[in-house]
């Protein structure tokens, strides 16, 4: 259940999750190239869905944030469902992968906030009532922790359920639960992306009144 070291390069241990991440990268790039040649409409559907979802959540045009958030969505979705292929494990069932993704979100939130308002303005918006600054810092850190643990916990719990049922009644009884774990993985990819969009949107408009969410922005 826990990731094991396959081989080491220069003293760096390489785990099986890293190898399946490499396989996954090749799979995504190859699939994108093949689809781009044969069925470009499918790629357009994916990009349109991501753009609509992100701009609905953020309440502003999603084009500047689509590369980051769309990459997160596609990576996590493929990473969560790739565990059903034999000899491959989900990269997200090692806690280091969700932690890395959550740290990327944590840094990019501040990057986009500073880029939108400037350093001084962003810091002022962060500490708008000054005594709330410690709570704000704790909130920033704990949201990174919760992003990590939500993804990791969901994936590891569904895998554990499948493993336990498989040890009790093998081969055909766990199949609905495998389907459920696929559904959970896709839903977690959606939720991770939407939460990252919410956090970036909050950093962009921390001090302004919240705009009406009913206005639909499309790009």
């Amino acid at each position: 259940m826990f990731p094991n070291v396959v081989f080491t390069i220069f003293g760096l241990p390489v785990r099986d999750t890293v190898i399946s991440t490499w396989v996954m990268m090749g799979l995504i790039v190859g699939l994108a190239l093949i689809l781009n040649r044969c069925q470009p409409t499918m790629l357009e559907i994916i990009v349109d869905f991501l753009t609509d979802t992100i701009s609905d959540v953020m309440g502003c045009p999603a084009a500047p944030y689509l590369p980051l958030l769309g990459t997160l969505a596609i990576f996590i979705a493929v990473a969560n469902v790739i565990g059903v292929i034999p000899f491959l494990v989900s990269p997200t069932h090692d806690v280091n992968t969700p932690l890395a993704l959550a740290l990327v979100v944590f840094i990019s939130v501040h990057y986009f906030g500073i880029r939108a308002k400037g350093l001084i303005g962003y810091l002022r918006a962060l500490a708008s009532p000054f005594f709330m600054l410690p709570l704000e810092i704790i909130g920033q850190l704990s949201r990174t922790l919760s992003l990590t643990l939500r993804l990791f916990g969901n994936i590891i719990s569904t895998e554990l359920i499948v493993a336990v049922i498989f040890s009790l009644a093998p081969l055909f009884v766990p199949l609905p639960l495998v389907g459920f774990s696929l559904f959970t993985g896709l839903l977690q990819a959606y939720i991770f992306t939407v939460l990252a969009a919410v956090y970036i949107g909050a950093a962009l408009e921390a001090n302004e009144p919240i705009r009406s969410r009913s206005v639909e922005y499309r790009t």
Binding site: V57, L149, R150, N154, I191, V198
Partner: peptide, 9 residues
């Protein structure tokens, strides 16, 4: 969905 994710954590 966002609220459910926050509650589920």
């Amino acid at each position: 969905l966002i609220a459910m994710a926050l509650l589920e954590s």
